[in-house]
Simulated scan of single mutants.
Amino acid sequence: MIFPVVLGVRGAVNGVLSGRLTTGLHTGLVEASLRGNTRYYRMLLSSVFALSLVSSATIGLIVFSIGNVFYGVPLGDLPFIIYACVTINALAVFITAPITSLLGFLSYRRGMDPDIFVYPASSTVADILATVCYVITLSLVFWWGPAGRIAIALVSYGFCFIALLLTVLFGKEREYWRTIREALMAVFAVGIIEGLSGAVLSGVKAYIERYPSILVIYPALIDTVGDAGSIFGSLSTTRLALGTLDARMGAIKGGLGELLQVEIAALMMYAIYSGIAFIGEGSEACALAIILVYLIATLPIILASFSMAILTFTRGLDPDNFVIPIEMAFADSLVTSVLAMLVYLRVV
C-alpha cells in the first residue's frame, strides 16, 4: 500500500523541483552550476526538503488511516508507517535533487532546452531510486527487526532536524513559504487523484493483466504521455515567467509547432510500444490498441497541462508548483482507463 503512494509523492516533489529549476535557468534566477549557485536555488532546494518531509509524514498518516479502516492495521504501527514514508523520501530526495539539478545544468550549458529534457530524464531516474530506497527501508525493518526500526526512526529524526535547520536559514524568504504552501496543495491533489483512481481502477487493471506484453510496457505508456504533457507544460510556464506568452487559452496557437513536435515524439515511442505488443501477443489488435491509447490520451493531457499553466498563473500562483505533478497523475489515470476500456470492449 505504501509503495504506489510514496512513488507518486516522490514524483510530484521532483516535478516541482524540475519545473522551478528549468524556469529559473531561463530567467537567470538559477545559475548552471551545483557550486556557488544563487540564494534562490538554495532556497528552492531547502523548500523541496521541507516539502518532502511534510508530504511524506502526511501521506504516512493517510496510508495508516486507510489501512486501519479497511485492513485492521493496529495503532501501534502508525509510527513505523510514518518513519518508513519519511525515510524513503529522505533517502530519495538526497539523491534525486542533485541528479535533477545536474541534468538541468548540463542540458542548459550544452545549449539544450532543459524544459524538454530535465523532467522526462529525471523522473525515470527518480522512480528507480525511489524503488531502491523503498527496498532498502523495508529490508532494514524486516531483516534487522527492532534495530532496523530504530535505524529508520533515526533517519526520520535526522531529516526533520535538517529540514528545520534549513527553515531557520530560509524562513524569512517569502518564496520559501510560497513554494511549500502551493506545492503541498499540488502534492495533496496528486494523492487524492491517485487514491481515487487507484480505488476505482483497481478492478479495471485486472483486464490489462490478461496481456503480459501490454503489462510490460504499461509503465512506459503512462510515462510517455505524462512526459509529453510535462514538456509542453514546462515550456509554457517558462514563457509565462519570461512574459513571452499571453496568459490566455488562445495563446496556444503560437505553440502549435512545438505541440506537433511533442506529439510526433510521443507517436514514435508509441510505435515502438505497438511493435512490442504485436511481437509479444502476436495480435494486430494489440498493436492497434496501443496506438489508440496514444490518439485518445496524449492530446488531452498536453492541453490539460497548458490549461493548468494558464489557470494557475492568472490566479497569482506559480504554475511550476502545479503543472507537472498534477498532469502526471492525470496521465496515469487516463492511460489506465483508456487501455482498460479498449481491453474490456475487446478491441484487443
Rank of each mutant, 00 (worst) to 15 (best):
L259S: 10
A285N: 15
S197H: 03
L242T: 09
D223A: 14
G19A: 00
T22C: 05
F49V: 15
Y176M: 04
I222R: 02
F117G: 08
A271W: 04
A183T: 03
M268F: 12
L53P: 11
G24V: 02
E327M: 14
Y83D: 15
C286Y: 07
A228S: 11
E194M: 14
D127M: 04
M185H: 07
E209A: 12
E209P: 05
A183Y: 00
C85R: 12
I180H: 03
W144T: 02
I99K: 08
S139V: 10
C85S: 15
F70V: 12
F94G: 07
A277Q: 13
R39S: 13
L201F: 03
A32S: 08
F3N: 02
Y218G: 11
V125M: 05
S101N: 10
I279K: 15
L196D: 05
N89I: 13
T23Y: 01
V348C: 15
S55T: 15
L317H: 15
S197L: 06
T179K: 05
C160Y: 00
L53T: 14
H26L: 06
E258S: 09
A199L: 12
I193R: 05
S101K: 08
G15L: 00
L45K: 06
R149F: 05
M43V: 13
R346T: 10
V338G: 07
G226C: 01
R174E: 07
A340I: 09
Y176E: 08
A251R: 00
I88R: 13
A247T: 04
V216F: 09
S305F: 13
S213W: 00
C85P: 12
T336C: 10
P74V: 08
L342W: 01
G24F: 00
F188G: 03
L235S: 03
T167D: 08
V335I: 10
I290A: 12
V155E: 06
H26I: 03
Y41F: 15
I180P: 03
R149A: 09
A206P: 07
Y294K: 09
I193H: 06
V125W: 00
A183P: 00
